[in-house]
Structure formats: C-alpha cells, structure tokens
Design a protein around this nucleic acid. Structure first.
Length: 480
RNA sequence: GGUCCGGUAGCUCAGUCGGUAGAGCAUUUGACUUUUAAUCAAAGGGUCCUGGGUUCGAGCCCCAGCCGGAUCACCA
C-alpha cells in the first residue's frame, strides 16, 4: 500500500503544498480548535455581523486573484467562507491558496449575506487544522462505485450526504427503540456473545478458541436461552439489542453479523408481543420520520395499525382453494409442480404446503401482516394453541414480502423442551444446553417473546434495498 | 454454487471494424475582489482487474482466474 501511495502524483503535490504551508507558519497536524459551534447551529443562529469561529473540511474551493470562496463541512452542515487578500494580508492569502480539497481548516470571522443570498463567513483569520494527502472523489458525481463505497466507507460518508443521513437515522431508531421499551418498563440487558453451546436458533455458528480454558467457543447465533434464564430469575420484562453471528450466506438481506432485538415479557404471550410491535413501529415511524407510509423495494408500505392478521391455514385456503386441506399428497405435489415450486421426494403434505407458501405466497404479503396459528412442526419452541394441539400460538410478521419478526407464546414446559432439544440434537448430548433446561425446571412463568431483525427494519424505514446500505462496515471478500 | 452484467486517469464515464489511449471534474502554470459544478488560456497525468492464448498488431476476440453487482438455487 505504501509503495502504491508514494507513487501517486496527487499525493506528492499535496505533500509539497504541506511543506510550503509549514514554511509559511501553518503546521499541518496536531492542533485542536475551539469553535463557536457546529455549522448546522451557526446556520440556525445566523445573524449578520456576528463574529464566530468555525471549522470543517474543505469540500469545495474557488480561488480567484485576490479573493477565494470555500465550502467547509463538519458532517452537520456545509457552510461557505470567503477570504479576501486585503483583509487577511498577502502572506495569509498566499498560504490559503495552497490549501487542497479535503483539508481541515478553522476560521474566525463575521457572518454576512452574499449578493446571491448565501450565508457566508468573511474570514479575518484562519488556521490549518489537518492536511489531506489523498484526493477526494469528484465533487459533482461523487463516489458511486459500490465496491469502493463499502470498502472505504470514510470516503462514502464524505461524498454522499444521504449515506450519512441513513446512518444518523439508524442510530436515532435504535435510541428510540430503547426509549420506547424503557418507558414501558422493559429492562435492557447484555448476555454473552461467547457461547459454550450455540443455541436459541438453528444456524451454523462461527467458532473461536478460548486459550485459558483450552476450549472451543461459539459466537452466539441468538441470545434467546440466556434471556429466558433471566425471566426465570425474575426480571419480568427484558430485552437485548445486539449482534448475532451466523456462519451462512451473504446477500442483499443477509450479513454474517447482524443486529437483533429480542424481547421477553413474563405473564404475556404472543398477543402482548403483537400489541407491542405495532405500537413500537408506528411510534418510530411518526416520531423519527414523521410519516406512516414508506417506499421499500418498489412497494409503498403503510404502517397504520391495526395490521392484518390471518391464520396460516386460512391464508393457504385463500390462495390454494377452500378444499386444500382435504387434498391428497399427490394432488398437493401436482399443484406444486404447476406453480413451479420444487419439492423433495420425502416431503409430507404439510411440508409441500409450506414450500408452496414460502415460494409463492409470502412474497405477496406487502402490507404488514401477522400470520398466526402455524403448524407445530414448523415452530419447535412455542406453546400449542389452547384449542388445537396441532397448531402453535405464534405469529410471523411479514412486511414487504419479507419476514420481519417472529413472536411466540414461549414454551415453558421443561419436560417438553427437553424432548424437543433431544430430537434436535439427534443423539449428540453435548449440544443440549443443560443449564438452560435446569433453569426451566425451577419454573418459567408464561412468557411472550419476539425477535426483530433491526437491520431489515432500518432498511424498511430508510428505503434501503440492501442490508449493506444500513451496516457501516459490511462483510466483503478480502481484496485479492 | 448457476446465469447475466461490470472492472479503462484520483473520481464519473466514453472508446467505432482488432490499427498511436479519450472527455468532464480533479491536478499543475498563468489571468481574475461576490464565486458557488466559478470562468478563461495552456500543460502534465494510464499495470485498460490478473495470467495465458489467437494475431504482423489486443482495452476490444478466445481460455482460466480475481473482485463487485443483479438474479436464481441452497441454507434458516
């Protein structure tokens, strides 16, 4: 890298400029600067003749014979400054003309309005705060190459203000989620990222080695089992919003590390979660974005509550015919073939049905929809519906044709839980989380639980089509 | 993993039939005291993703690979 850089003509020129500036009494690095305020605040409090100190990165500069204009930006706002030779003197003006795009400067001066009615700072003195040695992307088209944008997010943030805006909104949303949940008496906790057993979901984990104990550990795939142990312990409303790690594919809606919000509420069930998520999403939409309709992946999504709720089997009948569940396995397979849905040899009727749902129905549910009363086989960790042991008391929230959040009336029967773990572990006892099961045996109250993919929620709210646009440093292949 | 598209100057892109590598911005030099994609004049700047092959000659055609994007499949 260093050889590559040293051969760069632009860098050489900037180093020469830096040396000239240092000779002129403008050291290139290492000085702090006390500003009156951030640029957005100076703009908000604009007042002609007010004397202020401001600083930022030069993002545009127009040098003329005896004066110069520049725009500086500090991430909050872009403000114009004007330098005149007769105001700051020949030497200071000559030095100013050695500045390059990307340099950080601090200026002092009075505010005024130009002929073209732009708020501007008339500079009486200036200081170099930090030299930029590499050229920034072009000012007009900016940086559009996706690979460079993801690999060099610094440059992306500098040249694409809308990217900065998305990440500011991301942080606002996460703060407001905490605010909302705290206000309802939920307690935020942090549970381990390093797990002895990767439980709480069915996904491939990342592995690491812990030297001191000479044992392998897993990066967590979900915090679920620890959060339930806290419910057992008497924390009756808990949530955790943090990273999960899954050792799987990488695409437009998947990053190997992603942010999940998991919420558990003792004495509640899937109904309390349903109320919670509707209130939370509409609250976020209104307080942060001031709207209830969002454009996402080519659809207009209206978050106005209450959202549609439909039992899984009704939804199937709606799409596949009222007599669907009277059909034979062969008839179901024939229908799958007709719909170009691939089914495996050994699949039973429920699996074929779900395959058809997955491929042809889920994607059509654009407006927020709760799918309830799923077949028990599909959801191993939930309580059965009171009126039908074949179905479980859960919902899947679908928005824009994508799964956004599942919620369960959590299974709290330790004997049943052990049975399901044993089936899942298929004879490998080391995969069973005995500490969790023991906790359950002391008794877990009836509990509602929910998981929300925060990155996908941010995608929806900011109109982003790719998860990489809402994660600052997404995973990419190493540069060959 | 399959298919399709892309990778050319710091950035954004063009490149005809296979025949000396192009533009705008940026950079350098000069002019310029209200500009704002400043303007005007001139100049410099290239591992055409990498490696092979075909050819008198390859940015362009062929083969293999790397990276990215889209899409499908797989996986939850």
């Amino acid at each position: 890298m260093s050889e590559e850089l040293s051969g760069n003509e632009y860098r050489q020129q900037r180093i020469e400029n830096m040396n000239k500036l240092e000779e002129a009494g403008f050291p290139a690095f290492g000085k702090a600067f006390e500003r009156t305020d951030r640029l957005d605040k100076l703009h908000a409090d604009f007042e002609v003749d007010r004397v202020v100190k401001a600083c930022g990165r030069i993002v545009a500069i127009r040098k003329m014979g005896k004066m110069a204009f520049a725009h500086i930006s500090d991430g909050s706002f872009k403000f114009q400054v004007m330098v005149k030779k007769d105001l700051i003197g020949d030497d200071n003006f000559a030095a100013f003309k050695l500045l390059d795009l990307g340099d950080f400067i601090g200026v002092e001066g009075e505010m005024f309005m130009t002929r073209t009615e732009e708020e501007t700072l008339r500079v009486s003195s200036w200081a170099l705060l930090s030299k930029s040695l590499l050229p920034l992307p072009e000012k007009f088209h900016g940086l559009t190459d996706k690979e460079t944008r993801y690999r060099q997010r610094s440059l992306d943030l500098i040249s694409n203000p809308e990217v900065m805006e998305v990440f500011k909104q991301r942080t606002q949303v996460m703060k407001e989620i905490r605010n909302f949940l705290d206000g309802r008496g939920y307690f935020e906790v942090e549970t381990p990222m390093l797990h002895q057993i990767a439980g709480g979901a069915a996904a491939k984990p990342f592995m690491a080695h812990y030297n001191a104990l000479n044992t392998d550990v897993f990066m967590r795939i979900a915090p679920e089992l620890y959060l339930k142990r806290l419910i057992v312990g008497g924390m009756d409303r808990v949530y955790e919003m943090n990273r999960n790690f899954r050792n799987e594919g990488l695409d437009r809606t998947h990053n190997p590390e992603f942010t999940a919000l998991e919420i558990y509420e003792a004495y509640g069930d899937m109904r309390s979660m349903q109320e919670l998520i509707q209130s939370m999403f509409t609250h976020l939409a209104e307080t942060i974005f001031g709207k209830i309709e969002f454009e996402w992946m080519g659809n207009t999504i209206n978050l106005t509550a209450p959202w549609r709720e439909v039992p899984y089997q009704d939804l199937i009948r709606e799409h596949l015919g009222a007599d669907w569940f009277e059909k034979s396995l062969d008839e179901a397979k024939a229908k799958a073939e007709e719909l170009e849905v691939h089914v495996e040899e050994g699949m039973d009727f429920k699996q074929v049905t779900h395959e058809i749902y997955d491929k042809t129905i889920e994607g059509t549910l654009i407006q927020p929809t709760f799918i309830t009363r799923l077949p028990a086989e599909l959801v191993p960790l939930a309580n059965a519906c009171a009126d039908d042991p074949e179905l479980v008391d859960v919902f899947e929230l679908i928005i824009g044709g994508k799964e956004i959040a599942p919620a369960y009336s959590e299974l709290n029967n330790p004997i049943e839980q052990r049975k399901r773990f044993e089936e899942q572990a298929a004879g490998d006892g080391s995969k069973i989380d005995e500490e969790f099961l023991e906790a359950l045996e002391y008794g877990m109250p009836p509990t509602g639980g929910m998981g929300i993919g925060i990155d996908r929620l941010i995608m929806l709210l900011t109109g982003s089509d790719a998860i990489r646009d809402v994660i600052l440093f997404p995973q990419l292949k190493p540069r060959g």
